[in-house]
C-alpha cells in the first residue's frame, strides 16, 4: 500500500487503539505495526503531538519486575476526536468502496 496513505491514517489508528485501552509506547507500536507496515519510530513524535494538543495524557506505572513504564491515556478531548475521526474515516472508506465496486461492475 502506498506509504502516503499510511501516514495520514496513523493518527486515527493510535487514537483508536488508545480508546480501547491505555498503552505504553512499545505496546502501542506493536499493536499498530502488527497490522500496518510503518517506520515505528514515527509513532513517538505523533504521541508527543497528541499530548501537546491535549488528546492524550501520560502516567508512569510499575511493571512486573522492571522499571516503571510510561502509559498513554486518551483525554475527554481525545475521545471526542477519536469519535469524529472514526466517523469521518468510515464515511470516506464506504464512499471509496462503493466507488471501486461500481467501477468494477462497469468493467465486467
Amino acid at each position: 500500500m502506498n506509504i502516503q496513505f499510511k501516514k495520514g491514517v496513523l493518527e486515527i489508528c493510535v487514537l483508536s487503539v488508545l480508546a480501547h485501552k491505555d498503552c505504553y509506547g512499545y505496546e502501542l507500536v506493536g499493536e499498530i505495526s502488527k497490522r500496518i507496515d510503518i517506520s515505528e519510530g514515527t509513532i513517538y513524535p505523533l504521541l508527543h503531538r497528541l499530548k501537546d494538543e491535549g488528546y492524550v495524557t501520560t502516567y508512569l506505572q510499575e511493571s512486573a519486575g522492571g522499571p516503571s513504564r510510561k502509559y498513554y491515556r486518551l483525554t475527554e478531548a481525545g475521545r471526542n476526536e477519536e469519535h469524529e475521526q472514526k466517523e469521518e474515516w468510515m464515511r470516506f472508506a464506504a464512499s471509496v468502496n462503493a466507488l471501486l465496486e461500481g467501477k468494477n461492475d462497469a468493467a465486467d
Binding site: Y24, S39, E40, G41, R69, K70
Partner: peptide
C-alpha cells in the same frame, strides 16, 4: 521514550539491531 522502547524490546527478546531497523 526511545530508551524505554529499546529496554522493553530487548526484554521481549529482540536484538538492538532489529529494534533500530524497525524504528526507521
Amino acid at each position: 521514550d526511545y530508551a524505554e522502547h529499546f529496554r522493553i524490546g530487548k526484554a521481549d527478546g529482540r536484538s538492538e539491531e532489529e529494534l533500530f531497523r524497525s524504528l526507521g
